[in-house]
Computed example of a mutant assay.
Amino acid sequence: MIDARHPFFRPLWRRVAVVAVCLGWGVFEFVSGAPFWGILYTAVGVYAAWSLLYTFKPGDIENE
């Protein structure tokens, strides 16, 4: 779903921003009264945190 090896994700701030937007949107959906979408976006945020922050290795990035 997320290609962590793409050069776009090289800077840390972009990886953190993607995770924050996904988790923030999940919270917004929960507050808005849409638990299905809240669960969905929170799950995407957790997956993004896992792949972009926890298991990310800078040496794996493909050079263009």
Rank of each mutant, 00 (worst) to 15 (best):
D3P: 04
A49I: 13
R14P: 00
I39W: 13
G38W: 04
E29F: 09
W13N: 02
L23R: 08
T55A: 15
S51Q: 15
R14A: 00
L23P: 00
A4C: 03
G26Y: 02
A48S: 14
G38Q: 04
D60I: 07
A43W: 09
I61K: 03
V27K: 02
P58T: 07
V27M: 09
W50F: 11
V31E: 12
S32M: 13
G59R: 11
R5K: 04
T55I: 14
V16G: 00
V16A: 12
W13H: 07
W25Y: 15
A49C: 09
L23W: 03
R5I: 00
S32L: 12
K57I: 13
G59F: 01
D3C: 06
T42L: 10
V46M: 06
F9H: 11
Y41L: 15
F30D: 06
H6Y: 07
A49W: 05
P35Y: 08
V27Y: 00
A4H: 09
N63D: 11
A34G: 05
L40S: 02
V16S: 06
W25K: 06
I2S: 08
I61G: 02
P35F: 10
F56V: 13
F30S: 06
T42A: 14
N63A: 02
I2D: 02
Y41A: 14
G26D: 06
W50L: 11
S32P: 02
A43M: 14
S32F: 04
C22H: 07
G59I: 10
L12T: 12
A49G: 15
G24S: 02
W25D: 11
W50N: 14
V19E: 05
W37R: 07
G59S: 12
F9Y: 15
L52W: 08
H6D: 15
A17V: 10
E64T: 04
A49Q: 07
V27D: 00
E64W: 01
G26A: 02
